[in-house]
Design a protein around this nucleic acid. Sequence first.
DNA 1: AATTTTTATGCAATCGTTTGCGTAAAAGAA
DNA 2: TTCTTTTACGCAAACGATTGCATAAAAATT
Lengths: 347, 347
Amino acid sequence: MSDKVPTIKVIAKKLGLSASTVSRALNDHPSIGLKTKTLVKQLAKDLGYEPNQTAIFFQKRKTFTIGVVLPKLSETFFSEAISGIEDFASMNKYIVFLGQSHDDEEREKKIIESMKNHRVDGIISSISKNTTNYAHFEMLKKYDIPIVFFDCIPPIENINSVECDMVEGTIKAVSFLLKKGYRNIGLINGPHKLLASQQRLEGYRIAINKNRLKFDPNLVINTDLSTKGTHDAMAEFFSHKRTPTGIITFNDYVALDAAQFAFQRNKTIGKDISFVSYANLPINSYMAYPPLASIEQFPYDQGKRAMEMLLGILESENKSDTNKGFRIKIETELVLNSHQNSGRIFS
Amino acid sequence: MSDKVPTIKVIAKKLGLSASTVSRALNDHPSIGLKTKTLVKQLAKDLGYEPNQTAIFFQKRKTFTIGVVLPKLSETFFSEAISGIEDFASMNKYIVFLGQSHDDEEREKKIIESMKNHRVDGIISSISKNTTNYAHFEMLKKYDIPIVFFDCIPPIENINSVECDMVEGTIKAVSFLLKKGYRNIGLINGPHKLLASQQRLEGYRIAINKNRLKFDPNLVINTDLSTKGTHDAMAEFFSHKRTPTGIITFNDYVALDAAQFAFQRNKTIGKDISFVSYANLPINSYMAYPPLASIEQFPYDQGKRAMEMLLGILESENKSDTNKGFRIKIETELVLNSHQNSGRIFS
DNA sequence: AATTTTTATGCAATCGTTTGCGTAAAAGAA
DNA sequence: TTCTTTTACGCAAACGATTGCATAAAAATT
């Protein structure tokens, strides 16, 4: 079919030159005469010659390809992150492969395998929440494929990572609620084994201590992040004497579900009870009960930074391999939600 | 560095065989003896041999790679679609390349170029809203790279496409509002030159005619889909004597902005004025003023169907090339929003 | 004019794998 | 035993480009 696609050989033959000369002419090699060079370039242009990258990749052992592996693409947080990764990758002539693990270890493993087979130059990943075995990541070393983790990071030594400082972020959230006058601060956390959950809890404890309050285990509940889990957590909060009035939630979805539950229990949101969450929704301003504030995690920026880090690693790959793992912590930011709606609706 | 990675040659040498025999043994070629085959396979396993796909791709001229090009990954509609594409691609051993055009023709062109250079087996694309020249798509024919368009489709003959029947969808929307008792049906449409806008308008006209109503040009406004554009449109609606009470909006964002505007003009949403939009947000149930109903476009399904179509084309590529363009129209569905919130808030 | 230097090009190997064709050895048939 | 068939494997080319090394031709130097 497509033997219309010209190769270097065709050009060489038409011009009575050797393939090597054509190659060098096209790549502005100094040892090619001007006449020949222009001749070759002209014909290449006329024929619409385009180098076959698969051949070059194969030869140079470099594909200009980045693999991105994450749990779920349709989550705003991740699609924002990919957007950052893709923007920055394409600026640097890289192209990104995508794979979603759906939080399944097996799928994650297969995707990593596939990307390794495609010989990506590097990988960026937020690991599956159910991954407990990390051999598929370790294996990449054998193929000299560097990996940068972001967001959800495995407990491995000497890895490259970009992450938000959740501890710091949670401290900010607690402090904010205290300053607003809420004394009973609750925390609806995610699954216990998640690093993200542990960090939130740590920040929570630090903030509680720093403010000379007593840590009350009844005010912290781990959930599976489902709507039902959130409702159950809220029900439990309400079943205790000391009901939290300022609640920090694992993410925006939890905050929305929790607020909905509170509303149904005739609480006035923003007054009786308020929420602070970790931002992962872009449209809080349209929400019926948006959280009072959100800890912004800058997913786009995280993706961009991860890509930058990976590019740096790729470019310095020849040099001393003393890479004991690069780590970037991104400062979170407490963003007050505008409450265009709740201002009118609840007051 | 990574000369640990074993190749077929290494295996051949260690076993005193030829590379071709090893290759055939690994691929279960019938002309290889059982002993040899098991021997080879065992050593391959011990050495952790993995074929170098870049070499195979190069040789077989097949990369098991699909390019996906769309305007903006962080839009829910697209991330859902990609999710569908990726799920289905990975089930079939394909891996997807991603590129976002940001609705810029130049970027779209570059992405397509890059994907062609990477020799993707096929491309799925929703084109940029600002693309007017389609040469970069036509060029793909030369490289035998089939392309399936979805969502935003260029006006080219004989193309493969998956799309929602917006005409039908709009008819449903108008009928729904009429049935609900709204007589003045407005349409906040997108940019005029967009096919999607034209289809909405067509459906609108058909529905108006079918119901023996008179088409009123004051009830249809084209916008740039920005918040300001929507507010301007609403202001214009309100400036006329005959103000629409049932409004169809180009998408959910427009509906939210429009509802906000109406609310600020002291309209009771869901009573004085109601909205029906084209769904692209997954979380209408948490919204302060969700549209009464949404025309669901099934982005995940569209992505999946596009991928299926592309796979079909790829698998039958040898056969008679009488492909005059496959076209799938997906039925839209009018989904009533649950209004968990507005029910309580507005009544 | 003879020698050296520079310039411009070709040869051939290489990247890792696949595959058509040829052939020695083993097995079967006469 | 001899001839034919089958079985099991190797050789070498191919995919499209790059690159170290050799070398012919041209230019510069003496």
